[in-house]
């Protein structure tokens, strides 16, 4: 099997380390995860997926489950190849194109006056295309941003997860709004790992919030210290609170890093790109996983809304 793309950081690590040992952590149809002896989670995806940090992508649509790859199998990463001897499979890394995981901050920025509009589009698409089995309904109900038209969507019903976590979640939002980042982080730690899904719903929302903070602060040219603080606090004790895959996503999100599709969405929100492109990106991510995509975008929406509020209040200029 051949790798088409590889995260350049991962590539470097493999080149430097020479021999990396690990085992198969989990297997799905279109992707599987390798846990290395240094507790790094490497994802191997087929070409239907969206490229992501610490991952590599194959050049074809492979079904990993039917290849016989199983949890626990030994993996050896050696020079330019990944060997899974128990299924007689080897992945050739030699021709893999390096992929840069770092955030792509926008140069051709959207006008300030348009950002609110663009965020409104995000909200609209969530209602129209989103999946509400996680805590998305809770996020939407939080009355941060008056969207002008009161959307009431039958699907965005409060479910038992929303009910259970509502109080704590609202406190988190409060702290974020009031710049009480340490407190926000404490609550984040408390509610992490909650919700349905392989990546629990709350985690996905937090991923979205962290990403949007980082991108928004860059957009307005502010020091990203706040975002960094939040992230650091969140990550300090997160490791054993949630699933390995979720932890990986949270760690990267804290640096503003995420998969290709979500990164493109963030670019589309903050850039001058046509609105149709934004909607297309939204649709793509909203349908990811069961409710994962929706939850992440809800987090992005929430983060952006909080920031817009803050900066609109701070400066009296709302349009430029």
């Amino acid at each position: 099997m051949k790798a088409k793309k590889i995260c350049n950081r991962l590539n470097k690590a493999i080149e430097e380390k020479k021999n990396i040992y690990g085992f198969i952590h989990s297997v799905h149809k279109r992707a599987f995860n390798i846990m290395t002896s240094e507790f790094k989670l490497i994802s191997v995806m087929n070409c239907e997926h969206s490229m992501a940090p610490c991952s590599l992508m194959l050049d074809r649509e492979e079904n990993f489950v039917s290849l016989g790859i199983e949890q626990g199998m030994r993996v050896i990463i050696f020079e330019e190849l990944i060997d899974i001897p128990q299924v007689s499979l080897a992945i050739d890394l030699m021709e893999a194109q390096p992929w840069d995981p770092t955030p792509k901050f926008v140069v051709d920025k959207a006008k300030r006056s348009e950002i609110a509009e663009r965020i409104a589009i995000v909200e609209k698409c969530i209602y129209e295309f989103g999946r509400f089995e996680g805590i998305a309904p809770l996020v939407l109900r939080v009355n941060i941003r008056k969207s002008g038209e009161g959307f009431v969507h039958s699907q965005a019903n409060y479910n038992k997860y929303c009910k259970f976590i509502e109080k704590k979640f609202l406190r988190l939002i409060d702290h974020l709004q009031e710049d009480r980042l340490k407190e926000a982080a404490k609550i984040a730690k408390k509610i992490m790992g909650f919700g349905p899904g392989l990546t629990p719903s709350v985690d996905d929302v937090l991923v979205g919030i962290m990403l949007s903070l980082i991108y928004f602060l860059h957009y307005i040219g502010e020091d990203r210290l706040e975002a960094k603080l939040l992230s650091e606090e969140v990550l300090k004790a997160v490791k054993n609170e949630t699933t390995a895959v979720s932890f990986k996503m949270l760690t990267f999100a804290s640096k503003g890093e995420t998969n290709e599709d979500i990164r493109q969405l963030l670019i589309d929100i903050f850039s001058n790109n046509r609105k149709e492109k934004l909607i297309k990106s939204l649709k793509k991510v909203l349908t990811f996983g069961a409710s994962s995509g929706t939850d992440i975008i809800c987090g992005i929406y929430l983060g952006c809304s909080i920031m817009i509020n803050k900066y609109e209040v701070k400066s009296d200029v709302c349009s430029s």
């Binding site: 038992k160 997860y161 259970f164 976590i165 408390k190 509610i191 992490m192 790992g193 909650f194 919700g195 349905p196 899904g197 392989l198 629990p200 709350v202 609170e241 949630t242 699933t243």
Partner: peptide, 13 residues
């Protein structure tokens, strides 16, 4: 029905 990973909070629910 509840389905999910065994995190502390999910267990609390």
């Amino acid at each position: 029905v509840l389905v999910g990973m065994g995190t502390e909070l999910n267990k609390e629910l």
